[in-house]
């Protein structure tokens, strides 16, 4: 019996012919290297274009009719506030939804339907969210073309991603530990707060940061709900009109004067730095918290 089995596994794991294996390896290596190279070329090109314009002035000046004195103060502040508000809306809702789906919801047809649709929502093009935001927040709820409406729209967009990442993280918490807590006389809520959430925190945080990083880079929904393209003031409340980095970059790129293209490149660098920083924080947190847990 033993022998038979080992025969069978030999059959299944017959090594590939040496040449075929080499070819496969080359193709797969190419599949990794090629996109990477393209990305590098794009980055270098942008960096060369935009670098001369970068500087303290660029960060602290308002946009202007003159390319050389124009800066990104208002779009930068707009983006940061947008991100903060988006986090404020989407994080509690997202974690709450994930906890409900994983820990409370009965496993029935309705739950499955909701779960499926959350996955679908994560794949909906961002401009659709923009249109929804325009109809729902800007017009129907009369928020106007405000930071609030923008953040609400981005929250809708970030929610499915946060929910899915949080569910994934919650699912990795071994059931043994929930039972350990129950057996000590913890109720479900205490178990979630003291055991499930602390253990899934690295995964949840990573999901939050990555989805916020994506939200801050989104252009379509922000333009759709009507972010302004020229804002020479800082927002004084969440109801004031605003602009955001991607919108400003888009605006500069669409100008005929090449000087503004340089500004756009510099703006892209700033946006990239923010996103890279957020991603690094996500990786760092994940690494650090995970180490603490193991």
């Amino acid at each position: 019996m033993k022998q038979q089995e080992s025969h069978r596994s030999d059959f299944f794991f017959t090594p590939l012919d040496g040449k075929i294996e080499k070819a496969f390896r080359a193709i797969m290596a190419l599949a990794v290297i090629l996109p990477f190279l393209i990305l590098i070329v794009l980055l270098v090109d942008t960096f060369v274009d935009g670098y001369p314009r970068l500087g303290w002035n660029f960060l602290t000046s308002f946009p202007s009719r003159f390319a050389s004195s124009a800066g990104i103060l208002s779009p930068l502040v707009g983006s940061i506030i947008l991100m903060g508000l988006t986090a404020l809306f989407a994080v509690p809702l997202g974690i709450g939804a994930a906890v409900y789906l994983e820990e409370y919801a009965p496993k029935n047809a309705i739950t499955t339907f909701i779960e499926l649709n959350i996955a679908n929502l994560a794949g909906v093009p961002s401009i659709i969210y923009g249109l929804l935001g325009l109809g729902l927040f800007v017009r129907f709820m009369q928020m106007g073309r405000s930071l609030l409406a923008g953040a609400a729209t981005l929250s809708l967009m970030a929610l499915p991603m946060i929910i899915m990442a949080a569910r994934e993280a919650i699912r990795t918490v071994p059931n043994d530990l929930r039972e350990a807590a129950y057996a000590l006389g913890a109720d479900r809520w205490v178990t979630i707060r003291k055991v499930v959430l602390p253990l899934s925190l690295p995964g949840i945080l990573t999901g939050i940061i990555l989805s916020l990083a994506r939200a801050i880079g989104e252009t379509a929904p922000i333009i759709t709900i009507g972010a302004l393209t020229y804002v020479a003031f800082l927002p004084d409340s969440v109801t004031s009109s605003f602009t955001a980095l991607p919108v400003q970059i888009f605006n500069w790129i669409s100008r005929p004067q090449t000087d503004f293209h340089v500004n756009a490149a510099a703006g892209i660098i700033v946006l990239l730095v923010i996103m890279l920083a957020m991603n690094s924080i996500a990786i760092f947190l994940r690494f650090k918290l995970q180490r603490k847990i193991q």
């Binding site: 071994p174 043994d176 530990l177 039972e179 350990a180 807590a181 057996a183 055991v195 253990l199 847990i293 193991q294």
Partner: peptide, 8 residues
């Protein structure tokens, strides 16, 4: 429990 399950 059968498997030790300290909170990590």
């Amino acid at each position: 429990f059968q498997k030790p399950n300290p909170f990590p």
